[in-house]
Design a protein around this nucleic acid. Structure first.
Length: 513
RNA sequence: GAUCCCGUAGCUCAGGUGGUAGAGCAUCUGACUUUUAAUCAGAGGGUCCUAGGUUCGAGUCCUAGCGGGGUCACCA
């Protein structure tokens, strides 16, 4: 089944044929690049490089560049176009008489288009209009583009015919990246951010490890998993929802600090803040507790902000977020009291239900005291926490893997970092008493039996590991995508994931070639 | 899952109360040897998301569906 080609696509195929007939391979093998657009712009020096009227130069600035033709301005026997490479754009100046006989009129003007990838050799100069450009002495087609590229024009920083169709941008990210420099910036910054985090952790001697993504028992978070099947073992497997239980096995094994930056998979709805596969950093450090972990997290994220922005202050939409240490700390119960006025510590379930009703919150019969407290906090307190804030000391029912609070047995030693009203980080002093852990798993089992499909499974092997003895340990998980949103100023998680999940395209459109 | 908005040329979009489609850019032909949203003259290009329905007649109205976006729910 063939898609019908548009007029422009037919033209481009025709041009490709004519190029072949002229002895030009529309898919060349290589090109030696000696300069990037951005380096040419920064290194050009008018005094040394600019030719005088008679063509002489103190020191010719010869370059060989390669990239995509992004515009074309033909003016008779001379032309200008912009070439885009990985670093940006540079203008190319082309004259008929500088090129082999017939090349300019027959090949360049007729058979090359916006979107084609070419190699250019020439010298750098500044035009009358003041733009640093490459005066081409040789031009070679490297790849013919058969599909017309949306043409985005720009004047004084304003974009014209900008492609705003999100569906186009997400489905054809390759085209989005070509035409939208800001998208390229976002993913560069994301990579830089991850590199900075990795270096921070490596410098402290923590070991980067890899743990299974295919797990016979999923664990480490409360979420619905994706299920799959291994044929030769005839075994049901789950895609991991977290790395936690494997990483803590490694602390049992004797490493002092381990971390993993990996994809987790959760079978949940999609939103600006949720993609079914997302990237998580998890870190576990022996002999430490959650207080210590708070300091590490602030230091790490403050460092990332400085590395990316040269400042602890980061603009996000209309608000400025300050990652400057130390961050505000607020216990969950304090937060609820200060916002709602209710002092809920020690309240029975019925009393909490009463509070929820007074606060006009929707609740379900299945919610226990922990869930009710979480509901109040999530609805009334969390959305207003814009600046990064450590929310500490959660109800024990919500945290089956966290250690009981040293001063209050109804709570656990746990914190979340809330920033811009969203969870960014979750951490605790890790529960390492295998009997307590078993009891917590069993509580989860009861929730599961009552229909909570996010309750955790009992993991016997993990309990076996704890029985060997796990040192006191601080653990932390951080959503890399959400941090990337904050650090790059994106309002949707889809704008920091190169290929976000979308429904398949309907039949008959496009990819059925 | 609920609800609202959107889906017209390769791209961005316009098409009051229904009369089988327009602009700019891109494309094609021509002019132009320092232009830059290049300019000038001419030309071609559309299953108006899909399927039904109402109507003499539907891009426009109705129903259902598909896809995208927003909000809510879900999501420790």
């Amino acid at each position: 089944m063939k898609r019908e080609l548009s007029e422009q696509e037919q033209w481009r195929r025709e041009e490709r044929l004519r190029l072949k007939q002229a002895g030009i391979n529309p898919y060349a093998y290589h090109w030696d690049v000696t300069a990037l657009a951005s380096s040419i712009l920064s290194e050009f020096d008018d005094d040394r490089h600019q030719p005088t009227d008679d063509g002489a130069t103190k020191q010719p600035f010869k370059v060989s560049v390669a990239g995509r033709i992004m515009s074309k301005r033909i003016m008779g026997k001379a032309s200008f176009f912009h070439l885009q490479d990985s670093s940006g754009q540079i203008q190319i100046y082309l004259r008929r008489d500088d090129l082999p006989e017939g090349f300019y009129n027959q090949i360049f003007k007729k058979l090359l288009d916006i979107g084609d990838i070419v190699g250019i050799e020439g010298f750098v100069f500044r035009t009358k209009m003041g733009e640093v450009s490459v005066h081409a002495q040789r031009l070679e087609l490297l790849t013919k583009s058969l599909r017309p590229l949306p043409v985005v024009k720009e004047l004084d920083g304003r974009l014209y015919n900008e492609v705003t169709d999100k569906e186009f941008r997400y489905r054809q990210r390759y085209a989005d990246l070509i035409i939208n420099p800001d998208v390229r910036r976002v993913f560069r910054e994301r990579a830089k951010m991850v590199t900075a985090i990795r270096r921070f952790l490596d410098d402290r001697g923590y070991l980067e490890v890899e743990t299974p993504a295919l797990q016979p028992i999923y664990g480490g978070a409360a979420a619905r998993p994706f299920t799959t099947h291994h044929h030769s073992l005839d075994m049901q497997l789950f895609l991991r929802i977290a790395d936690e239980l494997y990483l803590k096995r490694l602390i049992v094994g004797g490493y002092d600090g381990v971390y993993e930056i990996a994809k987790d998979f959760r079978n949940e709805g999609l939103s600006r803040y949720h993609n079914p596969e997302f990237t998580m950093l998890e870190l576990y450090v022996a002999y430490k507790d959650y207080e210590w972990m708070m300091e590490l997290v602030e230091e790490m994220i403050e460092g990332v902000a400085i590395e990316l922005h040269g400042s602890t202050e980061v603009q996000f939409g209309d608000t400025e977020i300050s990652f400057k240490r130390p961050w505000k700390r607020l216990s969950m119960l304090e937060g609820i009291e200060s916002v709602t006025g209710f002092q809920i510590e020690g309240m029975s379930r019925d009393e909490l239900v009463d509070v929820c009703e007074k606060l006009d919150l929707e609740i379900q019969d299945s919610m226990g005291t922990g869930k009710l407290i979480d509901e109040i906090f999530g609805a009334r307190v969390e959305p207003d926490l814009i600046q990064p804030t450590f929310v500490t000391d959660y109800p024990i029912e919500l945290s089956p893997l966290a250690k009981r609070h040293r001063d209050n047995e109804l709570l656990v030693e746990r914190f979340e970092v809330i920033c811009n009203g969203k969870e960014l980080c979750n951490a605790f002093s890790e529960l390492n008493d295998p009997d307590d852990q078993r009891a917590r798993f069993e509580d989860q089992g009861r929730l599961k039996a009552d229909g909570d499909d996010e309750a955790m499974l009992l993991d016997e092997d993990y309990l076996r590991a704890l029985e060997y003895g796990m040192p006191p340990t601080a653990g932390m998980g951080m959503g890399i995508d959400r941090l990337a949103m904050l650090m790059t100023g994106q309002q949707s998680i889809r704008d920091v994931i190169l290929f976000p999940l979308l429904r398949p395209e309907s039949e008959g459109t496009d990819e059925t070639e």
